[in-house]
Design a binder for these strands. Structure first.
Lengths: 355, 355
DNA sequence: GACAAAAAAGTTACCGATAACTCAACGTTC
DNA sequence: GAACGTTGAGTTATCGGTAACTTTTTTGTC
């Protein structure tokens, strides 16, 4: 636009009349440069709108100040706020976030792992612990600290920070059983490679079978979750299994659509049907009836992940940390129990997710 | 982890027994290398888990394949889905997204513009058209295509894609006036440097003054928007101005809290008070009563922004494009009009946002 | 004022890729 | 079979910094 040449350290050096290295030092090790000279260098940089070239810096220097963050989704999801927290924490340590979004596509994941590694990041944070084999191989071979987020149960590459999804599923199932619901269904967006959701589902089944109830009916699709999908899946479910009396939704947005659908069908919530979500999105407490759901401590996950990254960069060892979560009991499951509590008591409870 | 040295082109070359350059060519210009040799090179790369070093590549080569994306927020916001769309579109063209989040902090914005420029990106996409002077200076001096998103009305650096926020405000105000609401309030999270929100507010005032109504009462805070803030601001508003009969919320999540608050206060919506939001978040159609709001065509903004970036990288000229938006008339403003429509007709309407 | 120690600035060798240039081998064509 | 174009591969310079090493200047002490 303005000059055809972007200013470099050399331009600054020439302008001030010192060597390139002195200019570099004025940035890297300011106290090795005479204050008045440093002042002149700063002024020249400001005047020329100098922006250091990290490509060169990174290639030459040993350290990197980028952290690659790989998420499975950003749209309508937990991960936006996770990335937000993570970025704020890392930025405070002068680490830059490079974000990539796989959109739940395993091939894309391999491609993005490669792309992110090609920037020689100081560390990588990635959602989930189930990755395509090639992605794991690349991550291991790169010798970069890897922090897996959101899930911790299973084989981990290096370090993991997350919540116990199976325990959450158990809590969801147990809660419904305690409230007297008997015929449970699981509804929502579900991808094969979303092992977190599969674990929650397994937890729900664990709870129902512990209570001696039948199978959990499923109605899922590998599409992005939103209310319309929720309402459609509910319609399809009711059509073939009209005696369902409780719906476990894989996310709150799905639950919103389910509630809308039930209202249209004239079913009373929580009287006829109970509904429980996952995520505690902001609207959930504002619905009528307010949605019972599970709130993972998102901020804690972000903070713990950032702390783990910093610790690993700093030479700390691998670790596994669990964040808390909470069952937010609200109105959509507020039915009086009709079964003796003794039965429900058989189900293992784990309200704090300490697994 | 495994080897202490990350493989480089030289490692591959040594292993296959060719020169470094041949290996480079096998990647950059495959058809200048004998197929069988190419095969061997590929095999070696795969075996050693070679990942090219973009720091080196970018420094040496002339082109860059990163696009910097700077947003003001990710948490509870439009921008998560904008980034999502943008990334999907750019990835299809082999462009990598580097994300930065200013959290509405102008100093942070300058710092992040600098940080992003230091990666020598092929282009920069940034939310808004109001930036700190230093940020504008840096962007202009860098000679990089800059695409400003979300807002288009005002001085633009280079290229902009967005919606007409003032027209949206007018439509919100006009709609409330038409439905017979007379004492309007504006509520929500509002930062000084969120010029989009200020434009919408100005639009609302334009509509009310055209209808001969009094000033729009404001109750705002520079905090992240969420339902709790909405409910609190509503409480404070009612306390000192109990005759307000319509609330324009700066975002849907604020509106959720306002609706919850009105319910607790025993005010009927839309009978006693009308509520309108902005954003059309997913829950909005699932609330009871369902929230009237404005839906910007987010996907279009993402697509247009990506197209603009590609066009600019490709040598196309700067341009300004507007995306559509729609007033989603639902139940929270479903009051019968009590004023002659003639009055309301005086207000300029612009339902398609073509400005 | 001489000398050693400390501080400040300059020199030089890379980091890992790419592009321009050069060179060798191999078919063609007349 | 000599001249020539093609194709495939090697050489070399370079991108913009940084770090290690060296040299010069300043400072402090006796």
């Amino acid at each position: 636009m303005t000059d055809r040449t972007t200013p470099t350290l050399a331009s600054i050096a020439a302008r001030v009349g010192v060597s390139v290295n002195t200019v570099s030092r004025a940035l890297r090790a300011p106290n090795t440069v005479r204050p008045e000279l440093r002042q002149k260098i700063r002024a020249a940089m400001d005047e020329l709108n100098y922006v250091p070239n990290r490509l060169a810096g990174g290639l030459s220097g040993t350290r990197s100040d980028v952290v690659g963050v790989i998420v499975t989704s950003l749209h309508h999801s937990e991960f936006a706020s996770l990335v937000d927290t993570l970025q704020a924490e890392l930025l405070a340590q002068d680490l830059q976030v490079m974000l990539a979004n796989t959109r739940y596509d395993p091939d894309e994941e391999v491609r993005l792992v490669r792309a992110v590694l090609s920037w020689r990041p100081a560390a990588i944070a990635i959602v989930g612990i189930d990755h395509p084999p090639k992605a794991v191989e690349l991550l291991k071979a790169a010798g970069v600290p890897v922090v897996e987020m959101w899930d911790v149960d299973g084989p981990v590459i290096d370090t993991a920070v997350g919540i116990d999804h199976r325990a959450i599923g158990r809590a969801q199932g147990q809660h419904l059983v305690e409230r007297g619901y008997r015929r449970l269904a699981f509804l929502g967006s579900l991808r094969d490679n979303d092992s977190r959701a599969h674990k929650r589902l397994a937890g729900v089944e664990e709870a129902t079978s512990a209570a001696g109830l039948g199978h959990v009916v499923r109605r899922t699709e590998p599409l992005p979750g939103n209310p319309d999908l929720g309402e459609r899946l509910l319609g399809e479910l009711i059509e073939r299994q009209s005696d369902v009396d409780a719906v476990v939704c894989n996310s709150d947005v799905i639950a919103y659509g389910v509630l809308r659908g039930l209202r249209r069908l004239g079913r009373d919530v929580p009287g006829d049907v109970g509904v429980i979500g996952f995520g505690d999105s902001e609207a959930s407490s504002c619905l009528t009836p307010a949605l019972t759901t599970v709130r993972p401590d998102r901020e804690a996950i972000g903070r713990l992940a950032a702390a783990a990254i910093l610790s690993r960069i700093d030479g700390g060892g691998p670790e596994i940390r669990r964040a808390d979560w909470r069952l937010m009991t609200r109105e959509t499951t507020a039915r009086q129990s009709r079964i003796p509590l003794a039965m429900a008591a058989a189900i293992p409870a784990d309200p704090l997710g300490k697994g």
